[in-house]
């Protein structure tokens, strides 16, 4: 601690970012989560290098429902396709959906929740009542309905998942900003002559970031499960695309005889989701200046 204080210069803002990074680094489970998630991201990016996409789609003659071996690490499925290639390429869907959907949901929620929380009054009422209507339907069910109604194309699926996530996130953003904008230090800033833009940038956002980022990571891990669930039900990514939910759905029938077909994609799903959650927990602790190390 003493060493750190000497190191920090009178530069202001930067030292706190450094402090957050330092605290995050000290959190072992968060670092493990981050490492695992980065590895999964790398696998998703370099999936074609690891094994060509054709391996995930093409059937191998005479190699139906084979157990894991040195040739086929994860065995083969009921249509004689290499499971290893399918699981590796499946990571692309999960990672892309997790990042894109949670980022979009975050941006939309920060704007809507920010406006509702900071300005209040009728704007707040209008936004929140409309979202209340969405809140009546559970997010996954809503996504399911949208996809079922408009067809399960990729854009529809994205929109459905975003809409499913937004209402709960807006509530969190709004509540956070509502609490902050009534704090005395906002009034103090006004008293020092700060303009709205400065108050939002230097007072409200830094103080609201903690819960919002944590919520975004939790969202990301939920989205991975949601995409898999929708695909499992046949409404998400369509076969033969090797989405993890698809793999689980088709492996279900062979669960007794060939359990690896369920375990391996299932494990991939759990590890990805868990690693993001661990990062989220670590971020929450690192962002809270009140938690001492």
């Amino acid at each position: 601690m003493a060493k750190h204080k000497v190191k920090a210069t009178a530069g202001g803002g930067q030292s706190q970012t450094k402090e957050i990074i330092r605290r995050f680094k000290k959190n072992r489970s968060a670092m493990v989560g981050l490492a695992v998630f980065l590895i999964i991201c790398l696998i998703a990016i370099f999936a074609d290098v690891i094994t060509p996409y054709s391996n995930a789609i093409d059937q191998i003659k005479g190699a139906r429902l084979e157990a894991p071996s040195s040739e086929h690490w994860f065995g083969t499925d009921h249509l004689a396709r290499d499971m290893f290639a399918r699981v590796i390429h499946g990571s692309r869907y999960s990672v892309v959906f997790a990042l894109v959907v949670s980022a979009c949901a975050l941006v939309i929620s920060v704007v809507l929740g920010g406006v509702a929380g900071y300005y209040g009054g009728w704007v707040d009422n209008l936004i929140m009542r409309i979202l209340d209507i969405f809140m009546c339907i559970p997010g996954d069910l809503l996504a399911l309905c949208i996809v079922a109604a408009f067809g399960s194309s990729l854009p529809n699926l994205l929109v459905a998942l975003i809409i499913g996530r937004v209402p709960a996130t807006v509530r969190i953003v709004r509540a956070t900003i509502l609490g902050i904008s009534s704090a005395d230090y906002i009034e103090a800033a006004q008293c020092h002559g700060a303009k709205d833009a400065r108050i939002i940038a230097k007072y409200i956002i830094p103080n609201a970031m903690g819960p919002i980022i944590v919520d975004a990571t939790v969202n990301a891990s939920r989205i991975i499960i949601s995409v898999a669930s929708l695909s499992f039900l046949g409404l998400g990514i369509q076969a033969p695309a090797p989405e993890w939910g698809n793999l689980l759905a088709s492996a279900r029938e062979y669960m007794r005889t060939c359990p690896w077909l369920v375990y391996l994609p299932g494990l991939a799903l759990v590890i990805t989701s868990l690693s993001i959650n661990m990062v989220g927990d670590g971020l929450r602790d690192a962002l809270d200046p009140k938690i001492r190390d």
Partner: peptide, 21 residues
């Protein structure tokens, strides 16, 4: 307790009014 922005160091807190103006 509530009139100081918890995200700012003492240096920043005292500098803030001068920077704003």
């Amino acid at each position: 307790y509530s009139s100081l922005n918890p995200r700012m160091s003492i240096w920043q807190l005292i500098a803030e009014p001068m920077l704003i103006n």
